[in-house]
Design a protein around this nucleic acid. Sequence first.
DNA 1: CGTGTGGTTGACGAGCCTCAACATCCGTGG
DNA 2: CCACGGATGTTGAGGCTCGTCAACCACACG
Lengths: 211, 211
Amino acid sequence: MIELAALGTVVTLGRGTAVYREGDEAPHWYRVLSGTGCTSKLLPDGRRQIAAFLHAGDYFGFEALGEHGFAAEAITDMVVVRYPKLRTEALARTDGTVSRRFREIACRSLLAAYERLITLGRKTAGERVATFLLELARTAPDGKTIGLTMSRTDIGDYLGLTLETVSRTLAAMKHDGLIEMAGPHHVLLLDRPALEEMTEGDEPALRVGRA
Amino acid sequence: MIELAALGTVVTLGRGTAVYREGDEAPHWYRVLSGTGCTSKLLPDGRRQIAAFLHAGDYFGFEALGEHGFAAEAITDMVVVRYPKLRTEALARTDGTVSRRFREIACRSLLAAYERLITLGRKTAGERVATFLLELARTAPDGKTIGLTMSRTDIGDYLGLTLETVSRTLAAMKHDGLIEMAGPHHVLLLDRPALEEMTEGDEPALRVGRA
DNA sequence: CGTGTGGTTGACGAGCCTCAACATCCGTGG
DNA sequence: CCACGGATGTTGAGGCTCGTCAACCACACG
């Protein structure tokens, strides 16, 4: 019996290089081993939206049907495993476990994307940055020491803000004692409950009557 | 051999009723036969984001792993087919075609969600409304006569705008000769190329040098 | 040391939101 | 059949948030 792992090729990517571009044929999908990347799309006038940051363990590129709708690039040096779609498709056809696994990966990505819709559509700058920080903190060993491996521009393009607004919002959080910063790329969450409250917006002032 | 169709139950839903709520257990997934619905999520203070409008042929609810992260409701009277997850899971395990079908549905939804990220994160009000109109026009018989079955509030919650901005933007488009309206719920696209150009933002003014 | 890239901070303005008044549509009941 | 009332949509005035433009700073690298 074929194993999924046997179909993968390890690929090393230097910081800033493209894994694939928007419009490329999509014969492979990928999994991150180490480093940080992102998937993004440009509007003709240069505005950019990052769909997802890619961290160790994340899958990407599998959602493309014909060609890639989004580009993928390495933000830091990055190591990924590349899988050929055709052969993994064939494997999925015979192996129910693999097939189910694929479905679960797609569903998790979809759930994450839906969460991001509310962030981009309805949250304020402060709420977006708080959401982002807590998202990163989920994978931090101690849950509060965060390394920002991406630039302010990248964070802005991820959150639908400008780099200036990201910078200002972080400064305000520092000023308010919510976070501490050791250089531009190291954040320590000081007041997690306050940040969590920020991500959801305050409850409306005591609702009288119905629950 | 079991057929997928044999596992579905037809359910009729009155306008405004919930298919399921955020946090509900998710034993079923659904497909729309007729009518319009939406999936949405609320922030504690009442801000709402609509993740997707649901039209005939659309699948929804399958992405939930444990419980639903988003609510689903009928905007107009609606008929859906409800499928039990456990039994369709079992079917997918044995039938490669069904399994592949599920993966494809999930990937299509994911691609649509990614497209919406750039709409919500980077587009102006005018661009968002234009994107929305063209999205609806894709399923119109003549490609330009659109019935808006949802309210201005729903459109706003879908596009990350207020209902007033939606109304004003449509008025501006009418004024500019891009669309014509016969009542608040019937739109005719008059200048498709102009609308299409709007969805992508104008090209930057002639770039000199590198392509 | 220069030079370049990325980050911070400030001043200002545009775009969209908020609040409010008014219009229109539609179902209901007299 | 028409009058009423509520829900939905439109339009206007003003304000706030965040974007734009610009200057300055910090660090990495040759």
